[in-house]
Design a protein around this nucleic acid. Sequence first.
DNA 1: AATCATTTCCAAACCGCTTTGGATTGCACC
DNA 2: GGTGCAATCCAAAGCGGTTTGGAAATGATT
Lengths: 342, 342
Amino acid sequence: MNLKQLAQHLGLSPTTVSRALGGYPEVSEATRERVLQAARRFSYSPNARASQLATGRAMAIGHVIPVSTRHEIVNPVFADFIAGAGETYLKAGYEMLLSIVADDDVPRIYRELKSRGSVDGIILHGPRAKDGRIALLAEIGLPFVVHGRATGADTPYSWLDVNNTRAFARATEFLLDLGHRRIALVNGLEFMDFAIRRRDGFLSALAARGIATDPALMASDEMTETRGHAAASAMLAHREPPTAFLVSSMISAVGVRRAIEDRGLKMGRDVSVIIHDDELSYMKNGEDVPIFTATRSSVREAGRQVAEMLIAQIDAPGSAPQSRLFEAELIIGRSTGPAPRP
Amino acid sequence: MNLKQLAQHLGLSPTTVSRALGGYPEVSEATRERVLQAARRFSYSPNARASQLATGRAMAIGHVIPVSTRHEIVNPVFADFIAGAGETYLKAGYEMLLSIVADDDVPRIYRELKSRGSVDGIILHGPRAKDGRIALLAEIGLPFVVHGRATGADTPYSWLDVNNTRAFARATEFLLDLGHRRIALVNGLEFMDFAIRRRDGFLSALAARGIATDPALMASDEMTETRGHAAASAMLAHREPPTAFLVSSMISAVGVRRAIEDRGLKMGRDVSVIIHDDELSYMKNGEDVPIFTATRSSVREAGRQVAEMLIAQIDAPGSAPQSRLFEAELIIGRSTGPAPRP
DNA sequence: AATCATTTCCAAACCGCTTTGGATTGCACC
DNA sequence: GGTGCAATCCAAAGCGGTTTGGAAATGATT
């Protein structure tokens, strides 16, 4: 059933039917009601391709996920972020287009999405320091919002981020207050913007108390269980091992905990751990008392709001870039305690 | 730049340009080359909406992810499955449309995807016993492939699944061979098809050796860390605790391990654990020696192949349903050992 | 009753591509 | 030179909507 057939059935012109369904004021309430009922009865919905062609709007948002061929790691927070964004899209009538793309192909894909008219805007995931994608999207003229930020990007742009610096500074201070002096940082890949900010927060908190930093206690790597385990194992084998860990992700922290237990130590007593908790739905930080002391911020909520920001931007082209900064909560769990006496 | 403009620039008709780009034989090689060069120079790509409208094919595959409002759990294997499917789509020139949808809305969304012409086919995720979605999609006339199977579905349909029954039977036998007699099953939600099959494999292996089953040692729940922890904790507190666990997911197993260690026990010595390992990229089962003994099958490869099957089906409408059954490997890791003497 | 503003509807153009059904040209062949 | 055939190219008709620019009907006003 298409517009023409529906119109014919009603004895109306396609124009009128289209307007009735579109909520335009040029049709009487009586005929609008008739049209709506018929549409419902035949479960008619307008062909998306046709209306997109006619209006020039794709009613779709692109999520381009770069996958480097070497690592092949799918970002574990991605699923929850998408779930949040998906809620917003459903409400707003947008579709979500997902492209998993090799790093090098990203520019080409961006251009294609634009010239093929497949999407009205793009969500930029996993920004890096001086991320070239921002200038690229600005040049192409595709609306976008960054989940995170990119230190050193020249062009102004819209973003939503967690205050990573503050979160990790607070977490570090909390550990210092508990008497810890050898604090390790198990961070994400060093070129990721969030990792840079977390390290800055960590370092500035240490510096504020005059604590020297030890490069041997700072790791940057993919945030997987095995990499977390490897980093923590190496540090714990150090002749002056850390008494506390600051870990950038719940997933890595599982590996850190495994490393701690491998050595017969007990988390929360012998070694303290603070993580950043994205509130992953399949990896909740405990059900009542948190397993880990954590800086917490919902990535799902971030997904919802990033999507809202992008839609607002698409609806009001030419508007000034917006930004939102989430403050992470510091929640106390069972993984931290006073530094053990030497 | 659109077709007409490009054609005008070349002094050709849109028809010829379209055919040159489409690889049709009705144009001379010389003009084809000219057209291709011009297209490249202006980085022209045809408007997707327009060609989809003209051809009647969306060149897109829908992934509809049902989210029950109560649980709000995003399936953790989903990200890797998608990554695999995405590879196939990229090669075949398809786009991936993702809809996160409340359980109840699934039928409506299916119908809309069909009537709006948004997709050419659908991947069905997380099938349940007697899953109504299969009959629904058949009725609607939307090509689909199921990732998994649905016991008790009447209509024939295409699917790709792991041999869950066999995998869990083998794992159970392996534990029995090690002398374990009190074996617990920490499974997924009981209405999920894969969970049913895994339980069947588990039960039949026990029955084959004449081992009685204890309902207290069988849990079915969401496959999250916290639920895994809760189930294992309860079982370990039993007056006759299990000496071995069979766990349906790597994520739950993290919780099971935590429960074991909470009680001061050591995995692999005091308690054995076998998991099903989907080879999640962010949760690898160790880097050299596996952490867990496991039944292993790559969900990413499943994603690749399910997508291939669906595209093949779309290309050859009316062809008979296809199916593929993956056999899981049984790989030995550090989490299993002989049953401790009582 | 004539005038005019509103209300309600419609014909037709358009979005950018694909594809059908020729038209034209070039060439070999008798 | 006329015929037949293949090789090239093109005009125009869709695909299924939206939107512009009226036209017709209705009602209010004088």
